[in-house]
Amino acid sequence: MWQYTDTVHDHFLNPRNVGVIEDADAVGEVGSLACGDALKLYLKIDNGRIVDARFQTFGCASAIASSSALTELIKGKTVDEALKVTNKEIADYLGGLPKEKMHCSVMGQEALEAAIRNWKGEDVVVQEAGEIICKCFGVTDNTVRRAIWENGLKSLEDIIDYTKAGGACGQCHDKLQALLAETLARMQVKEVDPGGKPTGKAFEEIRPARPKLTNLKRMQLIMQVLENEIRPELQRSGGDVDLVDVDGNKVYVELHGQNQGDAARRQTLTGVIERTLREKVENNIHVFEVSQ
């Protein structure tokens, strides 16, 4: 018998926001009958803000409760805010899920991303691009890498609980073990910079092949590279940078600190920030300074 929290029971027995939005602005669909759970998410988006969210779910109590929690979490949020909702937040909202049921919360996050891709007119790919590792549940290597990275997974069992990969025939267990070892090794790389500080590696950097970026991915990547690489570098020379906005391939930043001279500012903007972003994110990125 699963030990569900009272909140899970409540959201299963009295799910919020069940149903269809006939004139939805975005629809996201993940899972399948074969997988044993599936979620169809409908969003009404007004001026970049999610004004209504509804769902239909095929699945167990925790899948239904996770869907209900997801809709509650994202209603009223802007699309950008909603995209920051992680599977962990969905689980936390429910007071936690049994470990074996964490994949239900991952399904919620994936449905949201699928819906927003749909709204942005991008390819509604149900699975993240990559090579299919688990044939039974159609899980790709990138989905597994991401789950390992975002949830700090440590074992094959963790991967099965969070992604379902390897949960059926077991033929991919060797591949999953290898993927786990590889990802953990990449995450633990302590590249020591000249100042002696280890630099954390973001998930997007450890993924080997980079697919064509969606707006969402580009934005996330820019933020990660800025945070993990550029800022520490500037801070070492007494400067700093804040991200102000991202519009397509245009990145707007605010510079702080000792970069007073025009030449020095240009050097920081193009020589450091733009160059790093082009190297790590996409090679057509332009960086502009926004004055205070």
């Binding site: 044993g36 699945g59 167990c60 109590a61 074996e100 049921k101 039974c136 379902k164 949960g167 059926a168």
Partner: peptide, 20 residues
């Protein structure tokens, strides 16, 4: 169970495994 009826299922979710 909410109405007092106790049964079991061959579904994946009840077994702790992921397959029915």
């Amino acid at each position: 169970d909410r109405v007092g009826i106790m049964a079991s299922s061959g579904s994946a979710c009840t077994s702790g495994s992921l397959e029915p």
